[in-house]
């Protein structure tokens, strides 16, 4: 599980794989909630739509930057894997990019174009968010299937596509619970309750398929004593799902108590699922084909990036925290003055 920390060619790929994995996790949680808000968009009325945009407006751009960092790290640290993965995923990547373009510009256009065009940009925002979520789920499914393209793997990918979109709606709804009030908050609680099944089924499907596809992963999961210290992952996940189930029955509470709890719980749940996946696939970056050590860039190049990352990443955390602090509390309609 851990590399030899005395030789740079050994530990640098490991450190970069960790950094990349970490970026993807942050991306999935952060852009997950704002993509989810986009998917829930058509279910709200016009005033609520503005408020929903208000809850993600100051953050979405920085959230999306984690995707750029993740794909950037794949590109710079594992150039061989980067080409292999992205050429295989050519079409879903294309759908995702069109989706990201549509939703990113719709943020601005819906607020600035003529009033009669607002509905059109609202649709673009919803469609863009949905396309992005579906294509990411599709890529996740294909990746779990070892990037093999057959009818069966495509079918599995189609299923994970739907589940990830529902999962994003779920985390988006929990975000809205903490950022909104009154009718919209009540609506958000209902959305979260109604999309929790997607999270359960999605995690279940991935957990079942992953060890079945690969003997190696099967071995990693079901051998003694690894099984023992893997056990907390599913147990804790199950407990969190029960906790979410219970709190979503009760919310909203008087005085807006615990409105933050679903989002924090959902984030933890996503993180646990992600750690399970990362554990399964390590040390492969292209499943069963290319390990992080085979695909890594030259140590001297990785080293120079690492120095920059060590200096800058804490600063990024610092000013990201500042932004969330400034825009804490209930969302308001966005305005420039």
């Amino acid at each position: 599980m851990f590399p030899d920390f005395t030789t740079p060619a050994d530990w640098l790929p490991w450190v970069f794989a960790s950094l990349m994995g970490f970026s993807i996790l942050i991306y999935v949680v952060l852009d997950g909630f704002d993509l989810g808000v986009g998917i829930l968009f058509p279910l709200a009325d016009d005033a609520q739509k503005d408020r929903m945009i208000g809850s993600i407006g100051p953050f979405w751009d920085a959230n999306e930057t984690w995707l750029v960092l993740a794909v950037g790290l794949l590109l710079v640290a594992f150039p061989a894997a980067h080409g292999l993965i992205l050429t295989t995923l050519y079409l879903p990547v294309f759908v995702m990019l069109i989706g990201l373009i549509l939703r990113g510009v719709a943020f601005e256009f819906r607020a600035k174009a003529q009033a009669h065009q607002k509905a059109r940009w609202n649709t673009a925002f919803f469609l863009g968010s949905l396309m992005t979520a579906l294509s990411q789920g599709f890529m996740l499914g294909l990746y779990i299937m070892g990037l093999e393209v057959t009818a069966a793997t495509l079918a599995f990918a189609a299923v994970t596509a739907v589940f990830l979109a529902v999962g994003y709606s779920f985390i988006g709804a929990t975000w809205l619970i903490s950022k909104t009030e009154e009718a919209l908050q009540k609506k958000s609680v209902r959305w979260a309750r109604e999309s929790l099944w997607g999270v359960i089924l999605g995690m279940g499907a991935v957990s079942l398929a992953t060890p079945l596809v690969s003997d190696r992963i099967f071995g990693k999961w079901f051998t003694w004593p690894e099984l023992l210290w893997l056990l907390p992952l599913p147990l804790l996940s199950g407990a969190l799902i029960v906790a979410l189930w219970v709190m979503l029955r009760r919310l909203p509470l008087p005085g807006d108590r615990k409105s933050w709890a679903p989002f924090v719980t959902a984030t933890t749940l996503f993180a646990l699922a992600y750690i399970g996946l990362a554990y399964s696939f390590y040390p492969y970056v292209v499943p069963e084909q290319l390990t992080i050590y085979d695909a890594a860039a030259a140590p001297e190049s990785l080293f120079i990036i690492l120095i920059g990352a060590l200096v800058v990443v804490p600063m990024i955390f610092g000013y990201t925290a500042l932004a969330y602090l400034i825009f804490r509390g209930k969302a308001t309609d966005l305005r420039y003055d």
């Binding site: 407006g57 100051p58 953050f59 999306e64 990024i316 000013y319 500042l322």
Partner: peptide, 12 residues
């Protein structure tokens, strides 16, 4: 990251 985070503060 610098521009993406601070544009939120700059705009809103």
């Amino acid at each position: 990251f610098l521009e993406a985070v601070f544009i939120g503060i700059m705009l809103f």
